[in-house]
Amino acid sequence: MKSKISIQNLNLSIGKNQILKNINLDIPENQVTIILGPSGCGKTTLLKCLNRLIDLEENVTITGSIFLDNEDILHTKSDLPGIRKKMGLLSQRPYPLPMNIYDNIAYGLRINGIHNKHIIRESVEHNLKQVNLWDEVQHRLKEPASRLSIGQQQRLCLARGLAVKPEIILADEPTSALDPLSSTAIEKKFVELKEEYTLVMVTHILRQARRIADYVVFMYLGEIVEHGTADEFFNHPKQEKTKAYLEGIFN
């Protein structure tokens, strides 16, 4: 198992509160890694460290390293947009860009220097097909993205992220605002996508984790309690806290 991201001795505090405590973790390539844990355990913060959106927050101190393909992205000299581009993000609720459906996907290409209309059109079609949205929207591409349903919006956000050709997809409880059908669609897509991408998804829904996880990380109060393959984690948990969590005592 080859690791895509390697987190070493990561500590993070906001103000005087330590949010992440000594995180060491290898995230395997081309697998679905699920970060589990009760709310407030620091899982979202950990995700934000990976694409350095944490930089937008106030009073943050970080120590340690995060290696992405042997480059320490916390201490790198290469530009941040380039790093972020490698990681698509799907957030708790969809945030389509304030433009039409077509431009939502074209935007990422344009800011990355692709202005060829032919290439952009192909990419729009290809990526909308990737997320099974093409049939629904192919005749209304010039409509504002805000008119889509929430489920469609979330799929559009996934397509938008895929269009800039990331290597990793980060998802922060991406189904929490969606109806069951759309949730299932997203979950299915994730399993398909691991052929080409490395996926990291934060969730607090155990059943969801069981359905799609290859590798599981369990966090509690800013620390990693246990991590391992899905089989190990769900069937042979080592830590008492993990057992308690799996039995539903936390929730």
């Binding site: 694409n51 959106l53 941040l80 380039g82 581009k85 698509g88 957030s91 860009l97 935007y107 990422g108």
Partner: peptide, 20 residues
């Protein structure tokens, strides 16, 4: 969330400001 969405696509802050 909109700021994060735009930044995660690889936009810099100015692109986020003036295009989004």
């Amino acid at each position: 969330g909109l700021l994060e969405a735009s930044m995660s696509l690889g936009s810099n802050k100015s692109q986020t400001a003036f295009m989004v």
